[in-house]
Amino acid sequence: MEMSTANFDMTISTVELTGRLDALEAGPLREMITAHLRIGKRRIVVDLSKVEFVDSAGLAALVKGMKDARSQGGDLRLVSPISPDAMRVFELTRFDRVFSMSASTADALRNW
């Protein structure tokens, strides 16, 4: 999996992922989110549009990030995966109703 980040202002950052978000990659993602929160980036957008597969371990990294961000007065929003194989885990666990999920990073950042 590849990860790239960008900063929009003092409190917002975006993370774009490509490839597979599974148990092998969940740890590095969790560490990256924690690092962003530690420097005050409490509003985070994770772009999953290019991710091909997400399992429950990848989901767990995102849920942990969302809970940690919300506990600091922020949030972790998602750009929805295009791949049905990546979207499936959110639908099966109903986390598609818990996360704010948008069609693009611009949509996710709107009104934030």
């Binding site: 429950s56 849920v63 969302m66 885990v89 666990t93 109903r94």
Partner: peptide, 21 residues
């Protein structure tokens, strides 16, 4: 349990996913 049943839990959804598929 599913997340809408209360405070979302971070882990433990694997078997729930399998049973639906």
């Amino acid at each position: 349990p599913l997340p809408l049943d209360g405070e979302p839990r971070v882990r433990g959804y694997g078997l729930l996913i399998v049973e639906q598929l």
